[in-house]
């Protein structure tokens, strides 16, 4: 996951730079507990800007839990606890006094099961803009909703029925609407928790094309069970196993010649 650099600084400085300047999200020795059960063990990981990072691993390995620590979504589950640091642009999001509401605006999320609000298509996308008072101008609001729907590649399908209920859309459309909703507030990082797992191949392909398109503007982290999908859309892949981070590597290397035996066994289908 080391991007080519113009001029090579000395090694120490290089390391320093990688940790602070280049990594959008930097996780240091993160442990996570559901009550007394530990779900994540000592995870350290850097996520670079404008790249797609995929998390793979068997069910229950902690990839979704880890994803949800990045916008503190786990806070909503009673009895959970995290130790260690998660830095976004160098700022620890677990620091006391941090504004979680603000954090979640910066770190958007798309869920496994599409969850449109029981409102109109327009109001779904406008929701984040309205609650965060990102715009009070009606024309600007309409423009940003349209932009988000275009970015999520669903505008042409819904432009004539923006006032219709979002619940009338198909599953694939609902998921793209949820992506549009997340994009509307212009997050810096977009977390996607198996965004295509409930969709048919055509809808899945649309979402994947969308991810490749979106990485030009956003830092994207995607959890997936589908290894072909990870190979298709991601630049960097991280393999989780039993709550531990086993290996992080460039996706191409990961799927052809991984460093760890465990990764190879999983990818070649020997377990999981």
């Amino acid at each position: 996951m080391i991007a080519p650099r113009a001029a090579a600084p000395p090694p120490e400085q290089q390391q320093q730079q990688q940790a602070t300047a280049q990594a959008k999200v930097s996780v240091r020795e993160l442990n996570f507990f559901y009550g007394t059960a530990q779900a994540l063990f000592n995870i350290s990981l850097d996520i670079s800007e404008r790249l797609v990072m995929a998390f793979i691993g068997p069910s229950g390995c902690g990839k979704s839990t880890f994803l949800r620590t990045l916008n503190r979504m786990n806070d909503t589950i009673p009895g959970t606890r995290a130790t260690g640091e998660v830095l976004i642009d160098g700022e620890d999001i677990y620091a006391p006094g941090l504004n979680v509401v603000n954090l979640r605006r910066r770190v958007g999320m798309v869920f496994q099961k599409s969850n449109p609000f029981p409102k109109s298509i327009f109001d779904n996308v406008a929701y984040g803009l309205r609650i965060n008072r990102l715009t009070t101008n009606k024309t600007e609001l309409q423009d940003r909703v349209r932009q988000a729907l275009e970015d999520a590649a669903i505008w042409s399908e819904v432009k004539d029925r923006l006032k219709a209920s979002a619940l009338g859309l198909s599953g694939g459309q609902q998921q793209r609407l949820c992506i549009a909703r997340a994009l509307a507030v212009r997050p810096e990082v977009l977390l996607m928790d198996e965004p295509a797992s409930a969709l048919d191949p055509i809808a899945t392909q649309k979402i994947e094309e969308l991810i490749v398109e979106l990485k030009k503007q956003y830092t994207i982290v995607i959890v997936t069970h589908n290894m072909q999908q990870a190979a298709r859309v991601s630049d960097v892949t991280a393999f989780f196993w039993l709550g531990k981070l086993i290996e992080v590597n460039a996706t191409e290397k990961m799927f052809t010649n991984p460093n760890e035996k465990l990764t190879e066994d999983y990818i070649t289908g020997r377990f999981g």
């Binding site: 509401v101 969850n115 609000f117 609650i131």
Partner: peptide, 27 residues
Amino acid sequence: VPASLREGALALGAPQWRVTTGVVLPA
């Protein structure tokens, strides 16, 4: 009201009371 709706709203940066009044109650 499914928890996923609440999470969806929270993930957009909605404070708890806006989740209740804007999403949960209408649903």
